[in-house]
Amino acid sequence: MKELRPPPKQMHRPSRSRPEIYTAVYRPESEMRRPLQLFNRMWQDLLASRELAWQLLKRDISAQYRQSFLGYAWAIIPPIVTAAGFTFASNAKVLNVGTTDLPYPAYVMFSTVLWQTFSEAITLPMRNMAQSKMLLAKINFPREALILSSMGQVFFNFAIKLILIVGMFLWFGMPVAASVILAPVALVHLVLFGIMFGTLLAPLSALYKDFAKGVPLLIGMWLFLTPVVYPVPSGEGLFGFFVKLNPVTPLLVTTRELATTGVLSDPQGFWWASLVALVGLMFAWLLYRLAMPYAIERMSS
């Protein structure tokens, strides 16, 4: 006769399989001395930070617009005001900007939207970092999430402004080139170029307050060297030279041209600037990661 055995007790199992053992080693020496391990960790953390970035993005967007009467309208009010101001000045002949390939109000509005998207890409990582100081000082979450969520915020804000741009196309009866489907690619490059600066400056701005004050000032000056309220200068002068040298010029102009005329004035410059953005972003990411423990050390916990 067989021996009767009670059925084996069901083991308590975790609801979701996790990596079996997560080992971390913290050493004093520079992480650059183990580059393969470092790059591997960066990649792992980037993957791990996607979901967190999404949660942070949702949190920040809802918080941003909930405590405001005009809400999402705040995304489109500034470009309208800027365009109105410059159009008024231009019509009154106070400002002489020459001819643009689009109706001037549309030109200013569209360019301002692009410029604002770029400048947000610089400032949002810094602002998010300042806002999460307390969490950064206490919890070791993948730091990449802050940058990813800033990037998400930049694109979200742009998406709202897109309504304005679509309305503008309809209002002025502007034709849309087939190349418009490539415009997002150029826009992404423009945003990545901004994020590169944001990532680079975020840990430094956690150390020195000077960055929080100086960066908006520099962005304001930069605006004047970028064809936002005036067309790309054709002249050989010093000003024209600086505008051409400015890497934001080809990125912004190409995005605008792809969406409107479809005729690219400086494709080569665009690719050079894109290369700078991508390589620079990798460097910025590396510095951001390496600088973080030192910045956190100097935050009050």
Binding site: I21, T23, V25, Y26, P28, K138, N140, P293, Y294
Partner: peptide
């Protein structure tokens, strides 16, 4: 917790660390 780096020595952690704050 891996928030700041040691200046000398080493810390090895096997498992998930969480601060209870």
């Amino acid at each position: 917790a891996g928030l700041i780096k040691p200046d000398v020595g080493m810390v090895r952690v096997n498992g998930r660390v969480a601060p209870l704050i």
